[in-house]
Structures are given as structure tokens and as C-alpha cells.
Design a protein around this nucleic acid. Structure first.
Length: 121
DNA sequence: TAGGTGACGCGGT
DNA sequence: CACCGCGCCACCT
């Protein structure tokens, strides 16, 4: 797939991240079919490539840290948005992925793949 | 064209 | 847990 399609896939994956849960860059890259492109997911969000409505605040790094917090309107914006929907963020900007991580099922992954196919991306 | 960058991730120490 | 090296890859000088 080309880069534009990859960004479209990211946007679709974003719609599946449940409120009150968080996903990782690597997880999104995997669901998009490019497991080695986690860096590009970060790039896409930073540049708004996944669309205005994408819940970027629900995306953290593999350790659970709010690694992109500095790129929001204010440094505490991501933390506030997460806490507003019940996600606990520690003083050092970390979330417990065991508790709040989105542990997507194989079924959800398949559903996404079907959506990609149907949209031809 | 070559080289540097980074909202990443994994494995080793 | 921290720190480090390395692989990764689209972008941007």
C-alpha cells in the first residue's frame, strides 16, 4: 500500500480505540498491516495525517508514557483528556497498560482488515 | 544523493 | 527500573 493509504488506515483504526482505553503506536502500526512502522504512526499524528477527529491523546508508547504530550495545544492537554474519560495517569506521565490498554481481539483485527479491503486501501 | 531526525520498539546489561 | 545499541522507515535538509 502507499503512504496515503497507510494514513487512511490509521484513521480507521483510531475509530476503534474505545473511550477510556489507550493504544500504542506499535499496536496501531500492526493493525494497519505495517508492524515496523510505529515511527510513522507518531509522524502521522504529529502532522495531523490521520484527520481532525482522530483521538491522538489515546495513543501512548509501548511503556505507557505520554510521549507525545508536548505536541498538544498545552503540555497537560493529553493528560486532562485521558483523565476526563477515566484513564489514570501517574505523576510522571505514565499509564498502566495492563489496566487501560486496549487489548484488541483477533476478531477486531479481522474486522478492520475487511474494512480496508472494502475501501480498497 | 547522502546523511540526519524522531509522538517507536525490542533485547541485552 | 534505567540505560544503551540497534533496527526500522518516511521525511527533510
Amino acid at each position: 500500500m502507499n503512504q496515503m493509504d497507510f494514513y487512511k488506515r490509521i484513521a480507521l483504526v483510531g475509530e476503534k480505540i474505545p473511550a477510556g482505553k489507550v493504544a500504542t503506536y506499535g499496536q496501531i502500526a500492526l493493525l494497519c498491516g505495517k508492524p515496523n512502522n510505529s515511527r510513522q504512526v507518531g509522524y502521522a499524528l504529529n502532522r495531523g495525517k490521520a484527520g481532525k477527529g482522530f483521538p491522538a491523546y489515546r495513543v501512548l508508547n509501548s511503556k505507557g508514557y505520554l510521549s507525545g504530550a508536548a505536541s498538544f495545544e498545552t503540555p497537560d492537554m493529553q493528560r486532562r483528556l485521558l483523565e476526563k474519560e477515566g484513564v489514570k495517569v501517574s505523576d510522571d506521565d505514565k499509564v498502566d497498560l495492563k489496566k487501560f490498554g486496549w487489548h484488541h481481539t483477533l476478531e477486531e483485527a479481522k474486522t478492520l482488515y475487511e474494512i480496508f479491503e472494502k475501501k480498497g486501501i
